[in-house]
Design a protein around this nucleic acid. Structure first.
Length: 422
DNA sequence: TCTGGGGTCCTAGGACCC
DNA sequence: TCTGGGGTCCTAGGACCC
């Protein structure tokens, strides 16, 4: 039988902020999305105030002020670095690990001896993460990933230890009976409604549904969930795969009407996407560029448009891709609109090694370009992001997103290290 | 005034081929 | 009234996740 553990960091972004500002322990915290738009993370104290996940900040500003809620802009350099430390620590306890998201990982525990006490081990892991990093986690253990997700949910909500084991059949019966289907991993809003219409309301009812029937009406994805709920493992551990698409997009701090700043923004996003692309040793074969006005303002004139442009040959060259992206933008742009957001997606990504040169391309030139990119990447890695950048990205960047309440990058930036005053 | 960003997988249907 | 059968590939759109 397979055994999975899901390790999930509690209120991850809020916990990261607390590590470096411990006076915030036991106080309500919220962390905002990019552009300080929505609330994307809440401490338990903030949840208790009834602040929902994903809510627009402006609707809850009053509640936050009245209750002394500490508000943070997103600090992804900090969260990303802390995440890596958590994952590196977990690998120390179990090498078979799937990093599922910035704050979650599955561990495959099959190979531990039969009478090895996994609950004790989970407690040990939890304790060590707390000592090493100050990040609290919950751990759910079960024979399938879907059940491990549920176990984790229970661990977080209704245990004092932060650990829950769903391998026990009797336990499972009670938990699944009480769990509404929309809380199952992979069952979203739409599927819940459709299943409810058939009288399937709880995880237990879905588990006991006929897999053949489910497959016919809901597809293979939901059929797998049924089997997983029955303890039959269908979803294995997935290793890191290079991305097939790489997006870079942002809402603007204030609306843009002119082509020039829009072009700077697009160049900036293209640059960011290319850096991610080279970091995973890949090349792209096409780009998707889009611009849009503010959809939340129906009274203003609306315009959104996008286009796809294939490349002559796969590339990761920032200069080339900026040129193509700007070209797309020239065709998409219409004056007379207030643009709120723009972005690029690099598509049809393939590995660097896989090389098929254009018959007519000048190889020599291409090699030189690749070397140039390497030098730029190295300088920016050593001296800080944006030490060298394309003039096309602009210098003032008035369109930059808002991040008015960002904490220091305590772990990745020399100028912002934690200071201890003795 | 203020409303995020970045992904994946599956399926149905059309185009095309022999 | 009759107008094959079987297959692949590609794409758009839907659904989901954190």
């Amino acid at each position: 039988m397979s055994i999975y553990a899901l390790v999930d960091c509690n209120n991850f972004y809020a916990s990261c902020e607390r590590v470096f500002q411990p006076y915030l322990n036991n106080k309500p915290i919220v962390v905002l999305s990019n552009n300080d738009g929505c609330i994307v993370a809440r401490s338990n104290e903030a949840k208790a105030l009834g602040i929902p996940m994903g809510a627009p900040m402006h609707e809850y500003r009053k509640i936050c002020i009245n209750n002394n809620v500490k508000i943070f802009s997103s600090n992804y350099q900090l969260y990303g670095d802390m995440s890596q430390r958590v994952m590196d620590s977990l690998k120390h306890f179990c090498p078979n690990i799937e990093i599922y998201s910035i704050d979650e990982a599955f561990l495959q525990l099959d190979s531990f001896e039969k009478n090895f006490d996994l609950i004790k081990y989970a407690l040990h892991i939890r304790q060590k993460l707390n000592i090493w990093l100050g990040i609290p986690v919950s751990i759910g253990i079960a024979p399938t990933k879907t059940l491990a997700k549920i176990a984790n949910h229970v661990a977080k909500k209704s245990t004092s230890t932060g650990i829950f084991d769903l391998r026990d059949i009797n336990q499972r019966e009670n938990i699944l009976t009480a769990l509404p289907i929309n809380e199952i991993w992979g069952i979203g809003k739409r599927l819940s409604l459709k299943l409810n219409e058939l009288g399937i309301n709880t995880a237990k009812q879905l588990r006991d549904a006929n897999p053949k029937y489910i497959r016919k009406h809901f597809g293979v994805v939901v059929e797998r969930i049924v089997l997983e709920l029955n303890g039959i493992s269908c979803l294995g551990l997935e290793m890191v795969k290079p991305k097939k698409n790489i997006t870079s997009s942002r809402s603007f701090g204030k609306p843009i009407t002119e082509l020039q700043p829009l072009s700077e923004a697009i160049s900036h996003y293209a640059t960011r996407a290319c850096i991610k692309l080279r970091n995973q040793s890949s090349k792209a074969q096409g780009i998707y560029v889009f611009i849009t006005t503010n959809k939340h303002k129906p009274n203003e004139p609306q315009y959104r448009n996008s286009m796809i442009q294939g490349f002559v040959e796969p590339t990761a060259d920032t200069n080339l891709i900026i040129r193509i992206a700007k070209n797309c933008l020239d065709q998409l742009y219409r004056s007379g609109y207030k643009y709120k957001k723009a972005g690029v997606i690099l598509t049809d990504i393939i590995s660097n090694r896989h090389k098929q040169n254009d018959l007519f391309s000048e190889n020599d030139l291409q090699d030189k370009r690749e070397k140039l990119m390497q030098v730029v990447d190295n300088i920016n890695a050593q001296m800080g992001t944006n030490t060298i950048f394309n003039a096309a990205q602009g210098i003032t960047r008035h369109w930059r997103m808002r991040e008015e309440m960002k904490s220091n990058r305590y772990t990745t930036c020399w100028d912002e290290l934690l200071q201890v005053v003795v």
